[in-house]
Amino acid sequence: MSFEIPHNSITALVGPNGAGKSTLMRACIGFERPDAGRLLIFGTDPMQDRVAAVNATGYVPQASALYRNLSIGDHLAMARAARPSFDRAYATRRIRDAGLSEGRTVGGLSGGEKAQVSLALALGTRAPLLLLDEPLANLDPLARRDFLTTLVEDIRERGAAAILSSHIVTDVEQVCDWVMILVDGRVTLHGTVVSARETHTTVSAGGLGGRATVGTFAGPGGEALALVSDGGPGRPSSLEEIVLGHLAAARTNRAALQ
């Protein structure tokens, strides 16, 4: 795979379970060694210079990786000690904006509140690249909205870049500028959300008339739909439909290979 992440953008990283999304994120921060190829974070190979790579990134792991017995304030103090550039005042503001107080112990927080603390830690690093590994997975709709609002505000304010992996395409569609679909460790689509929408249309699978499809999938009412990218007639695809079409194509290809 080969891709670049532009500044001042949020890239949605989507793909089925086991596609390699988390591995890709973790490789960016030096937690995993790529089997092959080369990964550069602002020109630095994380396996060669992990310090530089880590200092250039803010990371929100997939599951809550906070210290249960420590308070939110303790986490911020720890982050400040770990990274001298950590902007504690900014992180504190984010915590306060999320309706939390620094004195609360992490063990007593809800999933959404923990996610906000993780995000505040990542944002407080003021790193030019944020890596968010399925942070929305266990959040209720309101908590997801709060999380994404905070993220977008920060990225737009600083002109930073973020990669956000998620299964919830309808949510990321509202905030992401770029989309990257990852299947079996391969990038099957990478581009702006706008261009993806412009180049894909959705049609009823029954009325294809021999047109080549990207993939076919079931619509919300169970009807068979097809994603096409031939510039022909059809209704504009939503990002969810584009993702579904590509994932369906990958599944078909895998089945054919087997």
């Binding site: 937690f31 792991p61 990786a65």
Partner: peptide, 21 residues
């Protein structure tokens, strides 16, 4: 075992310095 190494090591560029501290 608690997964907090992800937080600790994503904030600390140098794991050696983290360990020493």
């Amino acid at each position: 075992e608690t997964g907090t190494a992800q937080t600790a090591w994503s904030l600390n560029g140098s794991r050696r310095r983290w360990l020493a501290r």
